[in-house]
Structures are given as C-alpha cells and as structure tokens.
C-alpha cells in the first residue's frame, strides 16, 4: 500500500546547477517528451538522490505498514477474513521487495536502506505510527488508507523513472483488491450488529486525522517541489490528492451511515473543492520526527526482526561476493 506524504528535501538550492547543462537539457527534454529514464541513463545527482529517498520511504512504509495489520492476522474472525488478510499483508511485503529492488537500481543496497530505517535516518508513512486498536481499524486501514495510496501511486506511476513506474503499476493492481477487501469488510461492520457498527465508527473517528495527514502537509507550507514536478518525480500536489480522495470517498463513507469527525467538512459549491478543518501539521511533524504513539514500538519490532535474522542473512552470503547494482 502506501506512500503518500513523502518528505522531500528542500531542493531550492539544488545542486543541478553543478550538472553539465547540455546533459541536463537532454534529460529534461526526454522527460518532457514522456520518455522513461532507465537505470543506466544519465541523470542529475539531485534526481537520483530524491528518487532513492522517495522509493525508499515508500518501501519502508510497506514493511512497517505490515505491522499494524499483521498483528490482526492471528485474530481475524473466520476463515474468509483470515485468509484474505494474510494475502493482503503478504502483498504489502511483496511491494516492499519490489520497491527496494527499484531503489537498488539507483545504487543503494537493500541492507543499507533497512539499516537507515532502523536507525531512524529515513522515514516511512506517518499513518503507521498510529495503533490499530480493534479489528475495525484494520478494515478502515485496508479501505481508506489503501484508497489514498492508490490515488498517490496511480499518479506516481506516470512519473519518469522506469523501474519505479513499473513497480507501481503492479502494486496498484494489487492495491485495488485490497481496497475491495477493505470496503467489503467495512460494509459488513457498518451493516452488522450494533456492536460492529460502534467498532467501525470508533475506528473511523480514530483514523480520520491520520488519513487527512496521509497526503502530506498542505501545499502552502510544504517544501517547494517545482523541480521535482518538472522532473516527474512528484506528480501531484498534496492538496490536489487530498481533494481527490475526499471527492471519491466522503460520499461512500456517508452512504454507509457513518459520520466523519469534522464538522467543517463539506463540498463548497462555489469552488468545487472540499472545505475541511486544517489538519494539525505540528502534530504531523512531531509524529514523523519520532514522537507518535507507535514510532518506538514499530522500529523496535523491525530492529528485533533484523537482529534475530542476522545470522540467517550471514549464512546466505558467499565470502567472495560483493554487492552489485541490478540493471532494472
């Protein structure tokens, strides 16, 4: 799933001025013409750096995202849900595998990326720093977080870097099944017993804030990304994606008789846009920088898994072998 709310480094003082102007011009012309950039092609250092950063954040989001949902596999009620949730979370881990491979084509080994995740140096989607408190939370995550992810990832799959786009196309196909699974799950809860309805409404109340945060800070306050948009690294603005999500999903949520915990939320007929309470971006920053309800736990679990598995990875190595960058 996931991605969304990427934190780019400020590239206003980007180092592209140091690049060979002729090569840079050719590169930009290729992107302009809709060509894909492939691993062995020339690319500006800044392009490479920002892409690694973005794909890596996305990959990390997939494996960290497997944790809050994964803890519910062992508690899923009934065969149908248990099998579906297993398959879904497995897909997410498979996405991480695809994405790490895509990032590796840019020259950063998977092991280094995972070490950077564990040390806190690189980020993952902020939503996974919130807990999945009940079974209904997993339903809301599978429906609405995955829906948000699809909006983000369909946009990014039209980007300029070949390996990432190809990975995203496959990921989006799988995500669309997750979304169906999540929606089906929410429908059963929302039309079920009073207890089930209460569970799903509570989960929606808990997850609305992270969902609004999911697309990243408002364009008004986010890092300038003109160069990244010109290079088709970033394909849509955070606010545009948020609006698109609200357009598609608010009516579906209301249709189920659920309420959304934002009294200001309504479609503004004049602007054609949704009005909503501005999410608390201070909290977003605080959480992404480590101070959320589950940051420590998520990283600790990941770190433990890495430590426990270290001997296995060692036993897979051949002494003489060195890391080589895959072609695509």
């Amino acid at each position: 799933m996931y991605g969304g709310g990427y934190i780019f480094e400020d590239s206003r003082n980007g180092s592209d001025s140091a690049e060979d102007p002729r090569k840079l011009e050719d590169f930009e012309a290729r992107i302009q013409a809709g060509e894909k950039i492939e691993p062995m092609d020339w690319m500006p250092a800044e392009y490479r750096k920002q892409l690694i950063r973005m794909i890596e954040q996305h990959a990390h989001s997939e494996i960290i995202g497997a944790l809050p949902e994964g803890t519910w596999i062992t508690r899923a009620p009934g065969f149908r849900r248990k099998l579906a949730l297993m398959a879904k979370v497995q897909d997410e881990v498979g996405h991480a595998q695809l994405l790490y491979s895509a990032a590796e084509t840019l020259g950063k080994p998977r092991e280094t990326m995972i070490n950077d995740l564990i040390s806190g140096k690189s980020k993952y989607s902020n939503v996974f720093n919130y807990p999945a408190v009940t079974w209904a939370d997993t339903a809301i995550i599978a429906w609405l977080i995955d829906a948000g992810a699809i909006i983000n990832q369909v946009a990014n799959s039209k980007g300029s870097y070949g390996p990432y786009c190809r990975a995203l196309e496959r990921i989006c196909m799988e995500e669309s099944f997750h979304l169906k699974y999540g929606h089906d799950n929410v429908v059963f809860l929302a039309t079920g017993t009073p207890k089930q309805r209460e569970m799903v409404q509570d989960a929606l109340n808990r997850w609305w804030k992270p969902i609004m945060h999911f697309f990243g800070p408002s364009d008004k306050i986010s890092v300038h990304t003109e160069t990244l948009m010109r290079w088709k690294v970033k394909m849509a603005s955070n606010d545009d994606m948020r609006q698109k999500f609200l357009d598609m999903y608010v009516p579906k949520i209301w249709e189920l008789g659920l309420t959304i915990p934002d009294p200001k939320l309504k479609k503004n007929e004049d602007t054609g846009h949704w009005d909503y309470t501005e999410p608390d971006w201070e909290e977003f920053k605080r959480v992404i920088n480590g101070d959320g309800p589950c940051n420590k736990e998520r990283l600790a679990v990941r770190r433990r898994a890495e430590e426990k598995g270290e001997w296995v990875r060692r036993a897979l190595m051949r002494n003489a072998e060195e890391y080589s960058v895959p072609l695509s």
């Binding site: 494996i63 497997a66 944790l67 994964g70 596999i73 062992t74 297993m86 398959a87 979370v89 497995q90 881990v93 498979g94 991480a96 595998q97 790490y100 679990v301 433990r304 898994a305 426990k308 598995g309 270290e310 001997w311 296995v312 990875r313 897979l316």
Partner: peptide, 16 residues
C-alpha cells in the same frame, strides 16, 4: 506470525 518479521523479505513472503 512471520508476516513482517522474517529474516529476509523473501522468507516473510514464503512463510505467508
């Protein structure tokens, strides 16, 4: 229970 916790991603996927 190995989902998300395997020694390498490929083993998470295999056990799942």
């Amino acid at each position: 229970e190995w989902t998300g916790l395997g020694p390498i991603l490929e083993e998470d996927i295999a056990f799942s």
